[in-house]
Design a protein around this nucleic acid. Structure first.
Lengths: 218, 218
DNA sequence: TTCTGTGAACAGATTCACAGCA
DNA sequence: TGCTGTGAATCTGTTCACAGAA
């Protein structure tokens, strides 16, 4: 649980790989490993050992030559950097097919996230129960965000409604969004948006087929 | 419907943005636009006009100076490059929460994809109906792939089962995989893997919070 | 001898600047 | 004058090569 602040600013590309390292190291720890070499880690995440070392060099935890990296310390530091240590509240907008699947997704808790509220624009689904939460109306967002101190919003609405959902969330004070809508979201400065787009990925597969190297990207 | 072959090899980074351009142009066409400038396109996808022009310069369709790009021609060429013209069969492995949401996802058809079969390892769900398909067993994959000429496999199983699912798919002859499991998949040469990882994205949001520029990536 | 840590070389992508055509 | 097309410059990220500690 090292409360280490990020030692320096971590390059974007490296940051994108940290979750994978964290996963692999948690698995290694579960398997009883106390130490892990860059080669082992590279094999686990599908990268080159060089890259693993360069990436990890941005962290405070150092490996020992001839041996490898200390699994426990690295897991702790990564958890700290990724913010898994502190619990944060999440609100999910849109309880269609995808929204319901996400609402019952058990991966939130493991990432230090607590699903605090569900909302939708459609008055017909408001009040309905999904998992162990009742669906609220989008208009209640400001109150919900304040009450639960929500920091992260998940956008699971159709593309046409995505910008409105983003506006409602940022307007209510949410500063990080994860969108599943195939659309570009315009947000105020200081708000982080990541977007997971199944439609785009499907199209890319069509394009990448019959290409040289294909990196499993995220 | 231009059957144009990709004029040259398109850089990876550019390729990743083509689906977004395609979406934006389809929207523009629907709005009645016959022409679209790089600035408009840039605003729609959240990029700089310079970049849009550079990206589009890899395609055969040219814009006209002082006017912009021809919407219809660009949409057609992009559809061709992205392989939206030819229908391809998809098999989905894993009919848990996520799998069922994907099975009823209506975005496949719009990308030239037809969901041809569903399979699972769990004998208890085999035979069950999801959408308008019956769930088959993973052992039937080779037969299903052959029968429906499946080209694309979607992996919607837990991380621990993902490698086995990938092996089954590639073993049956599927050459493109879209994985939703938070794990690195090892596949034979020539097989393309893309991975959509909600867990990773959630962790990244924690890390990126309070950062300068945050590109909405995919 | 093994494996980390890092400077240096390299490759790829983005941004800039501007020439040129409608 | 407006907007495309593209070489040049810059920036970011990856790979290489090797010095040095355990």
């Amino acid at each position: 649980m090292s409360g280490e602040p990020p030692p320096r600013s971590i390059p974007t590309a490296t940051a994108g790989r940290l979750p994978a390292y964290h996963r692999a190291l948690v698995a290694a720890a579960a398997a009883g490993a106390r130490t892990c070499s860059s080669a082992e880690l590279a094999a686990a995440v599908g990268a080159h050992p060089d890259q693993v070392r360069k990436d990890l060099s941005h962290l405070a935890t150092r490996g020992t030559r001839g041996v490898g990296y200390p699994v426990g310390a690295l897991v702790d530091e990564l958890a700290g950097v990724l913010g898994l240590a502190t619990e944060r509240a999440v609100v999910l907008v849109g309880v269609g097919n995808l929204g319901r699947a996400l609402a019952t997704y058990d991966g939130f808790a493991a990432r230090g996230l607590r699903l605090a509220a569900l909302v939708d624009v459609d008055r017909r689904v408001v009040g309905r129960r999904v998992g162990d939460l009742a669906v609220g109306h989008v208009d209640e967002l400001p109150a919900l965000v304040r009450r639960h101190r929500v920091e992260l919003g998940v956008v699971a609405v159709p593309a046409a409604a995505a910008q409105a959902a983003a506006d409602a969330l940022t307007g209510a004070g949410v500063t990080a969004l994860l969108s599943f809508a195939p659309a570009h979201l315009r947000v105020p400065d200081g708000v982080v948006v990541r977007s997971v787009d199944v439609a785009t990925e499907l199209q890319l597969l069509g394009l990448l087929r019959g290409r040289p190297a294909a990196r499993a990207g995220t």
